[in-house]
Design a protein around this nucleic acid. Structure first.
Lengths: 220, 220
DNA sequence: GGGCTTAATTTGTCCAACCATATCATTATA
DNA sequence: TATAATGATATGGTTGGACAAATTAAGCCC
């Protein structure tokens, strides 16, 4: 197990996320640059370094893929991130839209013992406050059986279980709509022009969600 | 409130610690280099930078002292460090000798809300597991729990912080022994017959102190 | 295939934090 | 007071992570 810088860890995590939500299981220089708020040149440099350390499969001008070692690291960071989020919400009463940026820092703390004790302290949770599965110590991940709200058929009720974007902007928007994990939603109508959807909740309130929002709300 | 790097924060903390136990309230390049495990050249560079940011008083070839702003930052880091140590011991059942290096990482987490909530979660503790006082949110520090030198266990280094007798006779005796506030002392042996103690200082000098003297020297 | 667009890489620079070495100040001591 | 020892600084160099600008490769469309 090598010593990685925080920056390297963040790249690994971004690659994991991008390849996870791309059909092909790969990530491009531009996608990572976008996500890391940096320039493609920087990403190319980092790809070389990570490749040197055998954490990604990299060939010039091609997309990259995490190696097994890289994936293991990504899952470990994800585990820490989600356990910390759970801690912040469950024990310190943070609201679920406040935890992300603090967890972004805490996920880099290096101490096997700390994270194992934290897991125990929290009662070995399977899902974090956003509904995302928490990888186990060995990297095993509870199934996340959710799909984007935008892919739900019309008039089939579903439960809001996770978000696919943890930016403050997005979470605040949800707050404005009064949308929370656990809400029961039903798509009543699709607007073909901009792919937005009309949704009703259990109380019968109706609201219109853009394609972007509906694509980042995950439901079962 | 400026954004400091972790490294800068660590220097600030080291300066605080050194000047706190120095008698004169100052810290030298070499002392900091020793404590930070780095070279004097590096420390000089950093002193210039911190001086530029008005966090220390710095003049070439002289010792440094934290400014008010610098002290505030140091106390804030100390607060975070000691609260985290308390958390690790009280809530996660770490033993008191395991917590330090993890707290060294956690003390850099930037979130006012987190640390305030943590303080509350822990029941607003005044002292950390090592008995050191935890600075309050406003920088106020509970009195540090000093004890008479005579009550220190053997072979545990401590710092001479106060006297409990301000008579000239006592102070002159201290002078004769070359004992000053700030000295690092270690009891090497106890003489059961008269309860006097053998003490060594940092230079390795050894001296014998009567029960009366050792009882009026306060240490932490 | 040729040309165009987009994506990726190379090159050269910058800054923070480090170091070794050489030099300069301060101090302690003969 | 002169001089050696110690302490601090200056200089020049390295590395990691970032950037802009220029260049090259890949993919696509006719």
């Amino acid at each position: 197990m090598q010593e990685l810088t925080y920056t390297e860890e963040n790249y690994i995590k971004s690659i994991y996320t991008i390849q996870d939500r791309s059909g092909t299981g790969e990530a491009s220089v531009n996608e990572i640059a976008e996500r890391m708020q940096t320039r493609p040149a920087t990403v190319t440099d980092m790809f070389k370094k990570l490749s040197e350390k055998s954490l990604i499969h990299y060939e010039k001008y091609k997309k990259v893929r995490l190696t097994e070692a890289g994936t293991k690291i990504a899952l470990n960071i994800l585990r820490k991130h989600r356990l910390w989020e759970t801690f912040l919400c469950d024990k310190l009463n943070f609201s679920w839209d406040e935890v992300h940026e603090v967890a972004e820092q805490l996920e880099h703390i290096r101490s096997q013992k700390l994270i194992d004790k934290m897991d125990e302290f929290l009662g070995f949770p399977e899902y974090d406050p956003h509904g995302d599965p928490i990888p186990k110590h060995d990297g095993a991940m509870p199934a996340s059986k959710s799909i984007p709200l935008s892919e739900m058929p019309e008039n089939v009720p579903c439960i809001f279980v996770a978000v696919n974007d943890t930016s403050t902007a997005f979470l605040q928007q949800l707050k404005r709509f009064n949308l929370e994990i656990g809400a029961e939603l039903t798509i009543t109508e699709r607007m073909p022009y901009d792919r937005s959807v009309w949704v009703t909740n259990k109380k019968g309130d109706s609201l219109q969600l853009s394609e972007k929002i509906a694509g980042n709300i995950y439901v079962v």
